[in-house]
Design a protein around this nucleic acid. Structure first.
Lengths: 186, 186
DNA sequence: AAGTTCATACAGAAAAAACTGTACAGAGTT
DNA sequence: AACTCTGTACAGTTTTTTCTGTATGAACTT
């Protein structure tokens, strides 16, 4: 990556960097779908093309950003399992490289992020259902009120059914069944 | 929803609102996974429990927010196909209601958002591959340089293969094949 | 144990995004 | 045609997020 290896012809180096930069730009932008910042997306792109695991300092130099930013950026990417910490003897610094198995990245992302959401939503819905049922049984509940409660309950039940389905989708992904439906290449 | 229908017992009304509010809170928060603001998530929740399609003014009143915000919020939800515009004769105002078929919402979201990302990424990758191949054929390309280009090319090829897979996943979703793998309830 | 080197917590600065009020264009009504 | 009502574009303000510099504690070296 660095210029001071005399194997590099400066002009060619620039050409390679230009190509990489464009790819990084696009991939980074679309990574906002994963809920990461544009700059974190760029960091990912940098690591993607790096020929070896990088340290925080190296990243900071390349990105022209503070080491602190690299630290937090790497941490979010670690949480998303998009980069891995790598051990290398002789180095005291932490080294990081991207997870090149994007199939894995994709399914992991779903497993962690969506599962969390599904669970918290299900819990909220179930709690609400209990409350509604309790309310519906109160003696002073008018006809009108009962109707409203019934409609709410119906909506919530439908939502819950959807979440149960989504939960099974996530299961299927974790177990790799998605690859039965849509096989990976070679 | 409004209090001035005398069928409502105020205390019970409060109780219902409290339940709804908690559900809206949770669902709204998790909607950030779809890349929408917390407040847009709340707007969705409001529409979810509304017993009839709502106008922008009604939403603004309920959310205690400006009509402009409602307008933009509804627009993003429309883009995500999470709400639908509804026509009602006699009313000059636009009316909106949520799409209650969340299975549909889920697959539509993928179809639109992820397809867009896949396409733009694939285009960028293909363009980069061409560039690299062109560079590799230049006569003054050193051994070292050729190696670097080769490694970049390999990474890009791998990424492209992943995107082709993802593209097929999206196809499968659009065609409802996901429901073969994980059937919806009832 | 003293001295380095490293990652990260934290507070403040900079940048981005969300939100609002005003203004205006288009559709509908009189 | 004049008038009214509705949705949204736009500019400015407020709020939130991102980014940085400094400080600190932990791990390693001497």
């Amino acid at each position: 990556m660095s210029l001071d290896q005399n194997e590099w012809n400066e002009q060619q180096y620039e050409a390679v960097q230009r190509i990489r930069k464009r790819v990084i730009e696009v991939v980074g932008r679309n990574m906002e779908l994963y809920g990461v910042t544009l700059s974190t997306g760029h960091l990912y792109g940098l690591l993607f093309f790096a020929d070896k695991p990088m340290t925080l300092d190296e990243m900071g130099r390349e990105m022209q950003m503070s080491k602190t930013s690299m630290s937090t950026g790497v941490r979010t990417l670690l949480d998303l399992k998009m980069v891995n910490k790598v051990w290398e003897k002789g180095s005291r610094k932490d080294l990081y490289e991207v997870e090149y198995d994007w199939y894995q990245t994709f399914t992991d992302y779903f497993a962690t992020q969506w599962r969390r959401a599904v669970e918290s939503n299900m819990q909220a819905l179930r709690r609400a259902m209990k409350e509604i049922e309790r309310l519906a049984q109160q003696p002073d509940t008018s006809e009108f009120m009962a109707g409203v409660l019934q409609k709410d309950l119906e909506k919530i039940r439908q939502a819950e059914s959807y979440y149960r389905w989504l939960d099974r989708v996530i299961d299927a992904m974790e177990e790799g069944q998605l690859f039965d439906l849509v096989p990976r290449e070679s």
